[in-house]
Computed example of a mutant assay.
Amino acid sequence: MTTVLPLADDATAPLTAAALSAEEAERLAVLLKAVAEPTRLRLISLVAAHEGQEACVCDLTEPVGLSQPTVSHHLKVLVDAGLLEREKRGVWAYYRLVPGRLEDVARALLLG
Score class of each variant (00 low, 15 high):
residue 49 A to W: 03
residue 30 V to S: 10
residue 33 K to Y: 10
residue 34 A to I: 06
residue 53 Q to F: 08
residue 5 L to Y: 07
residue 71 V to A: 11
residue 32 L to H: 11
residue 28 L to I: 12
residue 58 C to V: 08
residue 82 G to R: 05
residue 111 L to K: 10
residue 81 A to E: 00
residue 25 A to P: 01
residue 49 A to R: 11
residue 32 L to M: 13
residue 15 L to D: 06
residue 2 T to A: 12
residue 25 A to Q: 07
residue 71 V to D: 10
residue 14 P to H: 05
residue 68 Q to G: 02
residue 59 D to S: 03
residue 26 E to P: 01
residue 3 T to N: 08
residue 102 L to F: 09
residue 73 H to T: 11
residue 40 R to M: 14
residue 73 H to W: 13
residue 22 A to G: 05
residue 31 L to P: 01
residue 64 V to Y: 08
residue 63 P to W: 08
residue 44 I to S: 05
residue 6 P to I: 02
residue 26 E to R: 12
residue 35 V to S: 06
residue 84 L to T: 01
residue 96 R to E: 12
residue 89 R to I: 12
residue 86 R to Y: 03
residue 105 V to C: 07
residue 111 L to H: 07
residue 95 Y to K: 03
residue 89 R to A: 15
residue 97 L to V: 09
residue 108 A to G: 04
residue 47 V to Y: 07
residue 18 A to N: 03
residue 27 R to F: 03
residue 104 D to G: 01
residue 5 L to P: 02
residue 89 R to W: 10
residue 69 P to E: 09
residue 59 D to R: 00
residue 107 R to V: 01
residue 88 K to T: 14
residue 34 A to G: 05
residue 28 L to S: 08
residue 2 T to Q: 15
residue 32 L to P: 08
residue 69 P to I: 05
residue 21 S to N: 00
residue 13 A to M: 01
residue 61 T to A: 15
residue 83 L to F: 07
residue 106 A to H: 12
residue 27 R to T: 08
residue 71 V to Y: 05
residue 87 E to C: 04
residue 13 A to C: 08
residue 100 G to S: 02
residue 75 L to I: 08
residue 88 K to D: 15
residue 22 A to D: 14
residue 1 M to R: 09
residue 26 E to C: 07
residue 22 A to T: 09
residue 10 D to I: 04
residue 88 K to C: 04
residue 101 R to V: 02
residue 33 K to T: 04
residue 54 E to V: 13
residue 47 V to A: 07
residue 90 G to F: 12
residue 104 D to H: 02
residue 33 K to F: 09
residue 42 R to I: 09
residue 2 T to W: 14
residue 56 C to T: 13
residue 18 A to T: 11
residue 76 K to H: 14
residue 39 T to A: 14
residue 47 V to H: 05
residue 22 A to P: 06
